[in-house]
């Protein structure tokens, strides 16, 4: 714990800069910002943008760990910069880089296209064979049925898990932790009837079977979604499906 007497007045921030128009590759620029014990890394970036260089480019919105926009690598670890306090990185310098594993558009902004595509590919919505008419009321669910998927529904699509996943870093096709956890969220929802539509992708070699259960996704998840656990549950279901596909009444493989 840093006491008031030893508290530094400033802290150094090394920010990765990249301008596709004139940079071959990212470079680091060092900024000195005031140190406040209640400042987070995002506050430091906002200070730099206001006071030093208005061209610094990064995403952020809510400042309270809900929107999932401000994920970056801080000292090599993917974090929400709105929840990463400068006091935890004393004495500095603090290295801020764009999320690992994604193409960089400019400075700290990464290209989301791959992630968004994968997210929609797992069909993260409730699929019904037949919608019950409104007049028959809502789809009821017991607390136990809610508990089966609630944890996986907390994802804010911040992509920290993709940056932490060593498999995603070299497997472009890997559907990845957040999307697979979300698939599990709907597969485990008692109101949903879309499992069979999701299985072909999530049970494929690009789905859960690319995962080697390193578990870093669950370590860095700011919402405690536990994607690694979701993938493990899906692996068990997929394995049961694989064995029963050889039985006369089993679900046939695609």
């Amino acid at each position: 714990m840093t006491t008031a007497a030893t508290m530094p007045e400033t802290i150094m921030i090394d920010v990765a800069r990249y301008h596709p128009e004139h940079d071959e590759e990212p470079q680091y620029e060092r900024f000195e910002v005031p140190y406040r014990s209640d400042w987070v890394v995002l506050d430091a970036l906002n200070h730099i943008k206001d006071q030093d260089d208005g061209s610094l480019t990064y995403r952020w919105s809510c400042r309270m760990g809900v929107c999932g926009s401000c994920g970056m690598m801080v000292n090599g670890v993917p974090v929400l910069t709105c929840a990463a306090f400068l006091r935890d990185y004393l004495p500095g310098p603090v290295r801020v880089e764009p999320l690992a594993g994604f193409p960089v558009e400019r400075d700290l902004v990464v290209d989301l296209k791959d992630f968004i595509g994968k997210l929609s590919a797992v069909k993260p919505w409730i699929i019904r064979e037949e919608e019950t008419p409104l007049s028959e009321g809502e789809y009821k669910q017991s607390p136990g049925q809610l508990a089966d998927f609630k944890q996986f529904s907390m994802c804010i699509n911040c992509m920290l898990c993709y940056s932490a996943c060593p498999v995603y870093q070299h497997e472009e096709e890997f559907v990845g932790p957040a999307a697979l956890a979300l698939a599990q969220r709907y597969n485990a929802d008692s109101r949903d009837e879309g499992n069979a539509e999701r299985y072909p992708l999530i049970w494929s070699d690009d789905g859960i079977w690319d995962c080697t259960f390193v578990g870093e996704c669950s370590e860095v998840c700011p919402k405690h979604v536990d994607p690694a656990g979701a993938i493990q549950s899906a692996k068990l279901e997929s394995t049961v499906g694989w064995y029963t596909s050889f039985l006369p009444l089993g679900r046939k493989r695609d």
């Binding site: 494929s204 070699d205 690009d206 079977w209 692996k235 394995t239 694989w242 596909s245 493989r253 695609d254």
Partner: peptide, 15 residues
């Protein structure tokens, strides 16, 4: 998309 045969190896791995 073809279903993976990884479940066989994974179940042996688990056991």
């Amino acid at each position: 998309m073809r279903a993976s045969n990884e479940p066989f190896f994974w179940s042996m791995f688990s056991a």
